[in-house]
Amino acid sequence: MTLTLTCVAKTYGSGPRALHPTDLRIETGEILSLLGPSGCGKTTLLRLIAGLEEADPGAEIRFGDEDVTHLPVERRHIGMVFQSYALFPNMSVRDNIGYGLRMQRLPRAEIRSRVEEVIALCRLEPYADRAITALSGGQRQRVALARAFAPRPRIMLLDEPLSALDAALRLALRDELAALLRSFGTTVIFVTHDQDEALAISDRVAVMEAGQIRQIGTPEELYRAPRSPFVAEFVGHAMPLAGARRVGGLHLAGGILPLPAEAGPGPVYVRAEDLRLDPHGPLRACVDSVTFLGTHYRLGLSALTDQRLYALHHGQSAPRVGEAVTLSIAPEALICLPL
């Protein structure tokens, strides 16, 4: 089911716009994530698509050929996974999963077989007859997913489905969730504030800020070719290299960085993993802090630009705090943003 949004905006009461007019098209079977910091309008956009909020006049939301702009949520045939899961505490796992099918007034036998099918798909067999309160966080998350998917929704909407879990579990369930969503084959829209989650799960990512979509593209595109400082900094924590453009390249406080010929006049960014310790490098900096992180060291560097930068250092030993180091950056690793 393709989803087409045209001029969808939302204003709460007389407050500022939570979502500026937005156009968006999502193809059948695509997994799209809405990524952004809290308050960026991503949840508002999701709730507008679900029908839990009403868009400002002039908006149009189409599921395939059908205009659903004015349909209430219960008639949109969507599947939704809430941040808190919203599982019904008065029903067993099985009854939760069957609820949407019962609302469709399907024959009993069909409901039963469909519920069993989804329970097997989500590997919930051992818990099927348990009460919701007797489940762990990860199990609840799977029940919420199974419940949303059981009525064969046209679109699945997930609101931060992993954020209620603790960090270790979140990582394990992220890949499991990605695999399950792929196996469903439905169109999925996924809200998250965690860039790793967005990059790992989605086909395309829409980065949002201040009620607007700033950039939309595949995870690789966003990571390698951000088009604005916000996207560069939010996706992959790129750091600005502030300096003056003159002959020879970018003049930083700690040296002259040669720029590739095709670099435009826009700001230049670099990621911590691309800032290399190099005895023959053109840049000098002073080590401010050294943090050992197991696979690598994280070095805080001052005097390279007027802002503190970080470098990831893989190696058996690291420079000490206060030591002066020289650095280099591969030209292809520089992120040159348009003006």
Binding site: E74, R75, H77, G79, F82, L87, R147, P151
Partner: peptide
């Protein structure tokens, strides 16, 4: 909202 999203 959960029940509504399921068609109730």
């Amino acid at each position: 909202e959960g029940a509504a999203s399921l068609g109730a």
